[in-house]
């Protein structure tokens, strides 16, 4: 672990120039945006969540763009990658999404800080799985990374993994709280070795959430892990991704850094709540040539 180090300036430079090396236009741009929708974990994680706004979210996940827009784009129906909620609304979401094929993801293990009693964190996973969650987004104990206690992080991640059973597990690293790029890389490696199906940047509650440099570091580690083990780990940036342009950039980063397999929801998700509205506006512009407004698109 100690030999894995990241050069911050070089990563920043690559992340900065990457977005200027690649762009997509017209139909290609539309296709990227459709795919971005298919990869969204449509999320609500607020203290004031109630069954009604969770229901609204689920309906939006089933029909993220209006049938009219879908028709004009002339594409097959789409839905978001998943719906992501707190444990309290897993059961509601599961029933709202019945028959849609959309999995429910639950944030877990004392989200967002991850500092509740360890047994309780495991129990939280069990209960969400019991309620029907297909995916569990766990948070790691940042202290393990900050104190370089990688064995402890490994054990923790193993325990979470086992608790998830057949459910997919996404490991939230909380990159903005790990202090250095090197810690992000090391935590990525440890979580993958300990059985994470996805590594995810952030809870959305840290001061700094998903950024392209973090994404670059994590995707490089995913590539490295694949080369060593033959196992493909998914990537989920979350927090702060609000624009269609950002979503496109992340997809292009997947394509160039990891390859085409990572352009699908089984290996790539975007954790977002307001992103979808911006994408809808851009798609409307694509089909009509006119700039759209938020109130013309159904809210989630």
């Amino acid at each position: 672990m100690q030999s894995l180090t990241i050069n911050r300036s070089a990563v920043d430079r690559r992340a900065d120039t990457f977005t200027k090396r690649r762009t997509v236009k017209k139909d290609h741009q539309a296709a990227y945006l459709i795919r971005a929708i298919e990869c969204i974990d449509l999320t609500t994680l607020s203290g004031d969540d109630t069954p009604s706004n969770v229901h609204r979210l689920c309906v939006k996940a089933r029909q993220p763009i209006t049938p009219d827009l879908q028709k004009r784009l002339d594409i097959t129906p789409i839905h978001t990658g998943a719906v992501c909620v707190y444990h309290a609304y897993v059961a509601d979401a599961v029933s709202n999404l019945a028959g849609s094929g959309i999995p429910v993801a639950a944030v877990s293990t004392g989200f967002p800080a991850g500092l509740s009693p360890f047994k309780q964190r495991l129990e939280e996973i069990h209960q969400s799985v019991q309620d029907g969650a297909h995916e569990i987004d766990i948070v790691i104990t940042r202290a393990h990374a900050l104190t370089q206690n990688w064995a402890a992080l490994y054990d923790e991640m193993r325990a979470f993994r086992d608790a998830c059973g057949s459910a997919h597990v996404k490991a939230i690293l909380a990159t903005g709280e790990l202090g250095t790029y090197t810690n992000v890389a090391r935590a990525s490696a440890v979580c993958m070795m300990a059985g994470a199906d996805f590594i995810k940047t952030s809870t959305g509650k840290e001061p700094v959430n998903a950024t392209l440099p973090y994404a670059l570091i994590m995707t490089r580690l995913i590539r490295d892990y694949y080369e060593r083990s033959g196992v493909k780990i998914g990537f989920k940036p979350a927090g702060g991704i609000r624009t269609a342009k950002q979503a496109t950039e992340y997809l292009m980063l997947m394509k160039d850094e990891l390859g085409n397999d990572w352009l699908y929801p089984h290996l790539f998700r975007i954790g977002a709540s307001t992103l979808l509205s911006d994408i809808e506006r851009q798609l409307e512009h694509h089909v009509s040539g006119r700039y759209s407004a938020f109130n013309r698109h159904p809210m989630s």
Partner: peptide, 12 residues
């Protein structure tokens, strides 16, 4: 657009 989606999103 569907075509591009089915073909792993080439850049164009």
């Amino acid at each position: 657009v569907q075509d591009i989606l089915n073909q792993d999103l080439p850049y164009g």
